[in-house]
Each structure stands twice: as structure tokens, then as C-alpha cells.
């Protein structure tokens, strides 16, 4: 067996946890019943790898079969590494009519025109998503199957999600995408996160939104130790208000899991107690990064607990509203698409 195939098997086995191996191999369907049973009985990762290598030899499985196994695992477990959202803009007249077969054919041929040594695999997933695995090579080297780029595109929508793409590969992917989807531009959507479903839901507005009219009384009864009923009544209303506004800004139910949001502030420093700085012409340059295991949940809690004043500032509510987590804030727009105008004060 050649070295590259062996390394691919080893890499795959390292990546797939033992408890998920059985279902992944079953979905792959390249093993005979007997081989599958033999794999199930082995405990150690090392022995499993050796056994799979032997099976690959025996069944004459090639690299393309192994990449298939990788894709199956990746589709089921996409939350590995950072995903970046892109948006296709300015659709052509026929953009809505592109179907899977057409897209597959065109994408492959366009990308192959740009990069000679490239290995592309396209697979349609049940939720209308098209998964593309690209192993890049160049004039002097064969496609590197150990560092593939993954692209997830929802046909007939302008949304594309990408992981493990280098800046050198980006223009090529961009061109192939634009040509095969009949759009004009492939733009950075300024949204990234570790959880693919979350950034997809944010960008495609699939999370549970809360509208002022529809929302039922948010107060839930809670048994508490003896408190002053007057104080409680006094506080209940603002608390309910804050929660309502927090939900309107960030959504109700389970919120999409986002890890961070970055704001590049290039706004004037305004503080009535500091005339020296307020009179300064130049903007005050700073970068603010919010991070959490579930950013939207944290921000919602900030608003409902009163740490953040309500109504929530448009800067923060723009994360779910615009489906972005990277913003450049300036005092006077209009600027590039990622810019926002600071309207307060």
C-alpha cells in the first residue's frame, strides 16, 4: 500500500472516536458483514487501524473511497475548527434554476481549469446542503488529502460555509463558486464560529425569533423565600420588561451557539467631562471582542439581568439581526458592507 493512503487511514482513525466508528463504517458500506463484525470486536485504536489497513488492501479500496469515509464522518460531525460564512451576491437570471447535477459538473470543471492538480468530491446531504471536499495540489504536487477544504452550499440560496481554506485558495474557490452558481460576487459574510449549524441558522434566520406582539408573559412563577411583596411588585415589572427586550433582541428558546463577536471601533471619543478628547478630530481606535461558550445566551443574560441597559443597543442586536459577528463601526457611513453607522448620542 502506498504511503499516502496509509497516512490517510491513520489520520482518519485518529480523528474518528472509537464509539462512533461502528456507525460511520456502516454508513460507508465498504466492509463485508464479517469484516464489520471483526472491527466491532477490536478495542484498541492501534489494532483497529492495522485491521482497517488490511481491509483496504483486501477490498482494494482506493484513496477516493477513503475520502468518502472522511466526508461521512465530517457531515455527521461538522463542528471541528472554524467555519467562515460567505455570501454570493448579484444573482444572474438563471441562478434560481441551477440544479445539483449542473452545479456538480460545472463546479468541478471550473475548478479544474484553475487548478490542475485538485481532487473534488461532492455529496448531497439530506437537509438540502451540498457538501464539497476539495484536496488541493499544485503544479509540482499531487492533491494533499490530509488538509482538505470543506465547503457547504445550500443550492438556490446565496449562502456558502467554508472551513480550512487558505487565503491562496480563496480566489480559486470564489471563481468556481461564482461561475457554477451564476452569481456575480463571492463575499465574506463577516460571520464565523465553531458551530456550523449555529452560523447557518443565524445567516439563514432559522433560529426562534421573538416579536413584541407575539410574546406571552415572560414571568415565570418562582417559589422564593419570604420577601417583601411590595418590593417584588416594584421590581417585577422592570425585570419582565428587560427580559422581554432581551428576547426581542436575541431571540427566544435555544439560541445558536456562537463563540465570539468582534467590533472594530473607529468612532469619536465623546464624553462631556472630557472636553480635550471630545474636541479631538481623530477617531478613538479600539477593538472589542466578546467571547463566551454561547455568546448570544450571555448577551441575552446581560440584558435581562440589567448589566446591559435595555433596549439593547443596535450594535449588539445586529449579531442575530444581520447574521454577522465582525463589524467595523465608524461615525459616518456609508462604507463597505461590513460597516455600521454609529447613531447614538
Amino acid at each position: 500500500m502506498d504511503e499516502s493512503k496509509k497516512r490517510l487511514v491513520q489520520r482518519l482513525m485518529r480523528k474518528i472516536p472509537t464509539k462512533m466508528l461502528k456507525t460511520t463504517l456502516e454508513k460507508w458500506g465498504r466492509l463485508t458483514g464479517e469484516q464489520q463484525r471483526a472491527m466491532d470486536s477490536i478495542q484498541s485504536k492501534w489494532a483497529l487501524t492495522e485491521n482497517l489497513l488490511a481491509i483496504c488492501e483486501e477490498n482494494e479500496l482506493a484513496v477516493k473511497h477513503l475520502t468518502e469515509l472522511e466526508m461521512i464522518y465530517m457531515i455527521d460531525n461538522p463542528d471541528q475548527g472554524m467555519w467562515y460564512a460567505f455570501q454570493l451576491t448579484d444573482p444572474g437570471d438563471d441562478a434560481q434554476s441551477v440544479d445539483l447535477t449542473q452545479f456538480k459538473e460545472q463546479f468541478k470543471s471550473h475548478l479544474r481549469e484553475l487548478v490542475r492538480e485538485v481532487s473534488i468530491k461532492i455529496k448531497k446531504h439530506t437537509d438540502e446542503a451540498v457538501w464539497i471536499r476539495i484536496a488541493w495540489g499544485d503544479a509540482s504536487s499531487h492533491p494533499d488529502h490530509l488538509k482538505p477544504t470543506y465547503v457547504v452550499h445550500y443550492l438556490q440560496t446565496p449562502y456558502v460555509f467554508v472551513t480550512r481554506l487558505t487565503s491562496k485558495q480563496k480566489p480559486m474557490l470564489s471563481q468556481a463558486m461564482v461561475l457554477s452558481t451564476r452569481y456575480q460576487y463571492f463575499k465574506d459574510a463577516n460571520l464565523s464560529g465553531r458551530n456550523l449549524t449555529a452560523i447557518r441558522d443565524l445567516l439563514m434566520r432559522k433560529y426562534q425569533q421573538v416579536f413584541p406582539t407575539k410574546y406571552p408573559s415572560p414571568l415565570t412563577e418562582r417559589k422564593q423565600t419570604v420577601t417583601n411583596p411590595h418590593v417584588e411588585r416594584e421590581q417585577a415589572k422592570p425585570a419582565a420588561n428587560r427580559l422581554q427586550m432581551a428576547c426581542e433582541a436575541f431571540g427566544g428558546g435555544t439560541l445558536p451557539q456562537l463563540q465570539s463577536a468582534v467590533y472594530k471601533l473607529e468612532t469619536k471619543f465623546r464624553d462631556h467631562t472630557n472636553t480635550l478628547m471630545t474636541e479631538r478630530e481623530e477617531p478613538f481606535r479600539c477593538v472589542v471582542k466578546f467571547s463566551s461558550t454561547n455568546l448570544l445566551e450571555s448577551l441575552k443574560n446581560c440584558a435581562s439581568s440589567g448589566i446591559a441597559s435595555t433596549p439593547v443597543t443596535p450594535l449588539l442586536s445586529s449579531i442575530p439581526l444581520k447574521g454577522k459577528n465582525y463589524f467595523v463601526i465608524t461615525d459616518n457611513g456609508p462604507g463597505p458592507s461590513s460597516q455600521m453607522r454609529q447613531t447614538q448620542n
Partner: peptide, 11 residues
């Protein structure tokens, strides 16, 4: 807040 929010403020 729950979950904890971290703010990195770079000037």
C-alpha cells in the same frame, strides 16, 4: 452572566 462573558478591550 451565565454562560460567562469575556470582553477583550484593546485600545
Amino acid at each position: 452572566v451565565e454562560p460567562q462573558l469575556q470582553v477583550t478591550y484593546t485600545v
